[in-house]
Design a protein around this nucleic acid. Structure first.
Lengths: 218, 218, 218, 218
DNA sequence: CATGAATGAGGATTCATTCAT
DNA sequence: TATGAATGAATCCTCATTCAT
């Protein structure tokens, strides 16, 4: 049975729509992606989209945040595992970076500026903030553990450091020339962050004192 | 000439238009700013915009990159001045951050993601890339000098470090809760970066060696 | 058969649909009532509607004209009963008015202007005209008897007077402020009509003569 | 100059749009008139409509109520003129009827049921009610004067009688077969109304007493 | 008989751009 | 230069209708 003719196999419709939207948004700017294109790419009728999403906004939002929960879950798992801080950080970067790379221009990771700028409607704003906070908190957990173990500086809140790390990852992917070999070497990025975020050697001057003025570059 | 009657003093029309666009873009998402609004806010006729700009794109581009040259110039000046690396970095952050804060959501600083995503037309793409490279290069110059003086690690290209720093500043402004007191303290950000980018103490094991893989957080 | 499980008792489906449509049309303008709403309100699937009605038009038509046959029948019965003209008219008004009040905005009574304007397709047009003529004729019968008995003026066709009466009833319900106490007193309306439609006192000048042109208001 | 080529003479654009809308609404049901059609018929671009009207609703409303103010003014003038009640009523009917005939199916006169059903939005509702009250009041003024002169029954409020008269006129136009010769003779309608609304001969039984039960039809 | 996911033609509305003045 | 009325292509969204189950 099921001679639906030219229909695709019974892949769940909503999934197909999301996939098409993802695909298109990775190529064209948000602004230029129309629902007709999404529908066409997904091989469904235009109206079908509205059976699965409230709105164009809703579709975009879900597209942008797809898989985000999983990412947060994974990062959270790293935090909870007993893994040493250094390895944990590397693993976090790998996960976040992988997620980011997979969703390329979607920028679903932290700021998705296109998205965050589009959604100024309060409803979306808060939806978005919640998602973002989820990831920052997960990363902050890893750092908190590092602080507890005396490995991460505790003169800055974990959330602040988490934001910095995420910002670095973002830059790494967005702004770095894709052909730079270093870009493939996440370890370098982790190293810079770890050193910047490390607790200063206990013997030397206190961290918060005035190292800003003193150490390396006088 | 110019008996424009009840018009404002002969403030240059183009300047007024740019100012209005800046104002509006700082509030609404790009997507929601219309030329009618800009014209109205600037107190000029809609057609007048086309006397000063090719296009809506052109207007947006000029709006986004307004003052960017000045910023690059200032950063370059810091690099050329003999100021010590540490102070130079702080000053760079102050400048960039100030520019960023002033143009808030315009994101004219490094990537202006909205912008970069909007402009896929080759013409704009390259126009944009050039602007961005200008700033990265200026920051990289400061870092290069630091490397020459043995204060900045030289296992990573200066441009990579420059990108990281700019990414951190961006995060600092975009993602950090505006009410966090730390956000006002740029020195903290500089400190994290400087330590991360510092040349490792000569005594210990070489930084790039393999701590990444082994030790937790030294 | 009919192992419908948790369905309602075998209330006739079509009746439920009509009831829901009536309910909805009494609240929202025709224009805003969708088949989804009707189906939902009736607790049936959307497709089911098409098992009982040709069309949305058909559903609307049947909804609008529901009970109309009964009304015509009742009015006809009054005409055939030997009841005196005055009482008969009052009774007619009561029936028509009651029907009208029950179906309020449906306006199924005489013109259902919404309906008459909607249905320009010849099929519906004639269907509608037939229904309307039925009622006018029934009312006209009552008036004809009154003419035969010398109580109703016969210088105007019974159908014309019937239309006038129906128009008055319509206005009474539609245009009169629902809070006006008089609105509840149909007798007043009947009185106006009866006096206007009464045969003029034999003694005075003939009604149709020319009072219209000359005397103010006798 | 002004070789606008295929443009129409400088008839005011808004007027042209209203005229086209009127024309179309007189043929097709409200529901089927699209803005494209209106624009095309008016020989203007689709967007131009939005320069002159807020909305489709606004366009329709203005179309329906076009000339209504004039009508009310004329009726008011009749009331204020010293004309005898009978002639005044005839004149009122002539005016209202003329307005009605001119706007045919638009029903702008009193109830414009299509319109009144479409506009359930509070804004339009009240806009509509105000217009309607204007006309009823104007007609009621004429009747009030008749009451003061003892020519019109005063056991019913003037507004109620005004509504009845307007309802009769509406029926006359809408429901009567256009070919009935009587339809052209408004005097007949006025006569029915005048007799129904006349003060009963002072000599006979009091009007409010029980004439309903007694006179003409026993 | 009953269902409801899928469809896609159709319509309201926006807005960058032009051009006669 | 400056203007702003006019334009119409482009887009989001609705909803009557179908059909595989």
């Amino acid at each position: 049975m099921s001679l639906r003719g030219n229909r695709m196999p019974p892949t769940d419709t909503k999934v197909r729509i999301l996939a098409s939207a993802t695909e298109l948004l990775a190529r064209r700017p948000l602004h230029d992606v129309t629902l007709d294109q999404v529908a066409q790419a997904a091989g469904v009728g235009k109206g079908t989209i509205y059976l699965h999403f409230d709105d164009k906004d809703d579709l975009l939002f879900q597209t942008f945040t797809q898989g985000f929960d999983d990412l947060c879950e994974q990062v959270g798992a790293i935090a909870r595992s007993g893994v040493a801080c250094g390895q944990a950080l590397e693993e976090v970067c790998r996960q976040v970076s992988g997620h980011f790379r997979r969703r390329r221009r979607l920028l679903a990771m932290t700021g998705a500026e296109d998205a965050s700028m589009r959604w100024q409607a309060p409803k979306m704003q808060s939806r978005w903030r919640m998602m973002r906070k989820q990831l920052v908190d997960a990363v902050a957990q890893v750092l908190s553990r590092g602080m507890g173990q005396g490995e991460i500086r505790d003169d800055l809140p974990a959330e602040v450091l988490a934001n910095i790390l995420l910002g670095m990852i973002r830059s790494w992917h967005r702004d770095l020339d894709p052909d730079t070999p270093i870009r493939k070497n996440l370890a370098a990025l982790v190293d810079v962050f770890r050193r910047g975020a490390a607790r200063a050697p206990a013997t030397d001057a206190p961290l918060a004192a005035e190292p800003v003025r003193t150490s390396p570059c006088p």
